[in-house]
C-alpha cells in the first residue's frame, strides 16, 4: 500500500493514542461483551453462550426499576444543570467584560477538591445533624431535624447537579463567545426585542454548546456510582450500584456485564437520537 509522506506523518502521530485506545477501550468492551454471554457458577466461568443474563437484565423488575431510575435521575440532572448553567455562561459571556477569565477561574475552583469529597460534603450539609438542619433549628423554623433531605433520589440529583455544573457552563460559554456580536445588533436593527432575539439568534447559535453539555453530563451521570452510594440511600440507588453488587458480593460477573452492556446501549441510543434530532444546529457555520 502506498503511503505519502503526509500520510506517514499522520499515522505516526495517531499510533500511540491508537494503541492506547485499543487496549483501554476496545479490548475491555470486547471482554465485557463476551463475558455477558457466559454464566458463572460461584467462582467458575461457564463459557457456553447464552442470552440468560440479558433475559434477567431486561425483564426482571428490580433491574427495570434501577434502569428507569438511573435514566430519570440522569435526565433530570442534565435538564436542571443546563437550566442553571446557561444563565451563568450567558452572564460571563455577555456581561463578564474584562473579568471573564476570573469568572471562569472561579468556576473551576470546586475541582480543586476531589469529586468524592465534594459528594461527601452533601452528606454533611443535608444530614440529620447536618448544616441545613442545624441552621433551620437555630432559626426556629423546625423543632425536629428534617429526614427527607438525605438518602433519596432528590439528594442524588442535587449532588450531581452541583458536581457537573462547570462541565455544562464551559461548552455553553464557548459557543456563546463564538456568536458574532454584530448579529445581535443586526437582529435588534431588524426589530427584535431582547426576548425574541434570544430565541431567534442566541439560543439557536449556542445549541452546539448546549448539545455538548447535555452529552457531557448525561453520559457519565447514568453510570454514576459514588453519589447514589453516599447520598442516595436505598431509594436513590442506581444501576451502577447494582453492577458493583453483582460483580462482587453476588459473584455474578456475567450478569453484571450484561447490565453494563445494556446501560451502554441505552446511553448510546439516547445520545445518538438526541444528536440526530438536533443535527441542524451542528452544521459548521
Amino acid at each position: 500500500m502506498y503511503f505519502s509522506e503526509h500520510n506517514k506523518k499522520g499515522w505516526r502521530l495517531l499510533g500511540v493514542p491508537f494503541i492506547f485506545a485499543i487496549f483501554l477501550l476496545a479490548v475491555p468492551i470486547a471482554t465485557m461483551t463476551t463475558l455477558s454471554f457466559w454464566t458463572q457458577d460461584y467462582l467458575t466461568l461457564i463459557k457456553t453462550i447464552t442470552l440468560d443474563n440479558y433475559k434477567q437484565a431486561w425483564f426482571q423488575p428490580v433491574f427495570q426499576t434501577l434502569f428507569a431510575r438511573s435514566l430519570i435521575i440522569s435526565l433530570t440532572v442534565t435538564f436542571i444543570t443546563i437550566l442553571f448553567a446557561f444563565p451563568i455562561a450567558y452572564y460571563i459571556s455577555f456581561y463578564g467584560g474584562k473579568r471573564k477569565a476570573l469568572w471562569l477561574f472561579l468556576i473551576t475552583i470546586p475541582f480543586w477538591t476531589s469529586y468524592l469529597l465534594r459528594m461527601f460534603l452533601w452528606k454533611v450539609i443535608l444530614g440529620y445533624n447536618g448544616v441545613l438542619n442545624s441552621f433551620f433549628e437555630w432559626l426556629g423554623v423546625i423543632t425536629e431535624p428534617l429526614t427527607f433531605l438525605l438518602y433519596n433520589s432528590n439528594a442524588v440529583v442535587l449532588a450531581l447537579v452541583h458536581g457537573w455544573a462547570p462541565f455544562a457552563i464551559l461548552p455553553i460559554f464557548v459557543s456563546l463567545e463564538k456568536i458574532d456580536r454584530s448579529l445581535l445588533e443586526a437582529s435588534n436593527d431588524l426589530g427584535d426585542n431582547n426576548l425574541s432575539q434570544f430565541f431567534r439568534i442566541i439560543l439557536p447559535l449556542s445549541m452546539p454548546g448546549v448539545i455538548g453539555a447535555v452529552l457531557i453530563i448525561f453520559i457519565p451521570c447514568i453510570g454514576d456510582y459514588i453519589t447514589p452510594k453516599l447520598v442516595g440511600g436505598p431509594e436513590g440507588l442506581m444501576i451502577a450500584n447494582m453492577i458493583q453488587v453483582q460483580f462482587s458480593k453476588a459473584n455474578n460477573a456475567p450478569l453484571a456485564a450484561a447490565l453494563s452492556v445494556t446501560s451502554l446501549l441505552i446511553v448510546g441510543i439516547i445520545s445518538l437520537l438526541f444528536v440526530f434530532l438536533n443535527r441542524k444546529y451542528l452544521r459548521n457555520y
Partner: peptide
C-alpha cells in the same frame, strides 16, 4: 425607522 447594512454584513449563519 432606520435599518443598517453592517460592515461584515452580519448575515445570520443559521
Amino acid at each position: 425607522p432606520t435599518n443598517m447594512v453592517f460592515q461584515n454584513y452580519a448575515i445570520f449563519p443559521h
